[in-house]
């Protein structure tokens, strides 16, 4: 059974097709990065999966339940973290969590709330009114509430936007721990390096259509073309060494930037020839690393938004 599966899922707003025949496949237990430029249809897709808006066409199942008829069951199994998670401002974090916990039907609610607030780093602040919470504290509380029902699938909409580095790191850690517990995480985010760090699979949509849906490694490799790229570091690297590398058979490009040599080679074994040539030319090579394109590079390439020059 898939955690999420959509076929030809469609939703229009007036003349605009916000989601257009979307096919989405999220296997159980994976962390799925759901990416797309603004207005791509990410939020509308999530809103349909959660039952906030109705689809105009196609089918969708969440954990085996049809989104048109099985919302009640879906919500028992799914945790949801909305973008900029909203709360009842005049209530404390604990009161918010307990209110939603009662609606979920959480057993031993007091202990569960205490444990989750501790897990997300809100212990000691739970009794404070939410209106006094920082953005990071709100995100943490939102995650605690999303996890209250011990969900099998967690849908997170921009969970780290606006967080400081420590906050982002903590949330990535929480996501990793969920993966260890075989919880499926559906992560919609604009912060691509974070998606790259935690995701197993990425799906990129634009204009409401799925452009790419692949395991992240496969996707990154596919976007760099046929070449393999390497990065060399050695003290004293300059353009002369790039010229030496360029002359070796199988080297497609070589350039030095910021004291590092960047190579694109037809075969990984060519890097060994380059290393031998550089050492032979008197360079003390200290580091050789195969590099992958960043998710940002790959994303921009796919959505066609890379600016030339």
């Amino acid at each position: 059974m898939k955690a999420i599966e959509t076929r030809d899922l469609t939703r229009r707003f007036g003349r605009i097709e916000a989601v257009n025949s979307l096919d989405l496949n999220v296997e159980e237990g994976v962390i799925y990065g759901f990416l797309g430029p603004n207005g791509a249809g990410k939020s509308t897709t999530i809103n349909m999966l959660m039952g906030f808006v109705k689809p105009h066409g196609g089918t969708a199942k969440v954990l085996g339940h049809d989104i048109r008829t099985g919302h009640y069951e879906i919500r028992k199994l799914v945790g949801y973290l909305p973008e900029r998670p909203p709360f009842y401002e005049s209530m404390s974090g604990v009161a918010n969590a307990k209110y939603f916990g009662r609606l979920i039907g959480v057993k031993d609610l007091d202990a569960r709330v205490d444990a989750l607030l501790k897990q997300v780093g809100l212990e000691g602040r739970g009794q404070d009114k939410v209106r006094g919470y920082s953005h990071g504290m709100r995100q943490r509380l939102g995650i605690a509430i999303a996890l209250l029902g011990d969900p099998k699938l967690l849908i997170m909409d921009e969970p780290t936007t606006g967080l400081d580095p420590q906050g982002s790191h903590d949330i990535r850690e929480i996501i990793r721990r969920l993966k260890d517990r075989h919880v499926t995480v559906f992560l919609s985010s604009h912060i691509l390096h974070e998606v790259q760090e935690v995701s197993d699979v990425v799906g990129i949509i634009k204009g409401g259509r799925m452009l790419v849906e692949q395991p992240i490694d496969t996707f990154l490799k596919s976007t760099r073309g046929g070449a393999t790229t390497f990065e060399f570091y050695a003290p004293g690297l300059d353009d002369a060494y790039a010229d030496i590398a360029q002359k070796i058979n199988g080297v497609e490009s070589a350039s030095v930037r910021d004291g590092r040599l960047y190579l694109a080679v037809a075969e990984p074994s060519v890097a060994e020839d380059v290393n031998a040539a550089l050492v032979g030319a008197g360079l003390r090579v200290r580091e050789i690393r195969e590099t992958m394109p960043t998710l940002e590079d790959a994303f921009l390439k796919v959505v066609g938004e890379r600016k030339e020059g």
């Binding site: 959660m50 906030f52 009640y72 900029r84 909203p86 709360f87 009842y88 609606l103 979920i104 029902g149």
Partner: peptide, 14 residues
């Protein structure tokens, strides 16, 4: 208006 409806309706409640 406060968007708390998203929290409310994401829970198993009719």
């Amino acid at each position: 208006k406060d968007r708390t409806v998203y929290q409310l309706l994401s829970k198993p409640v009719e």
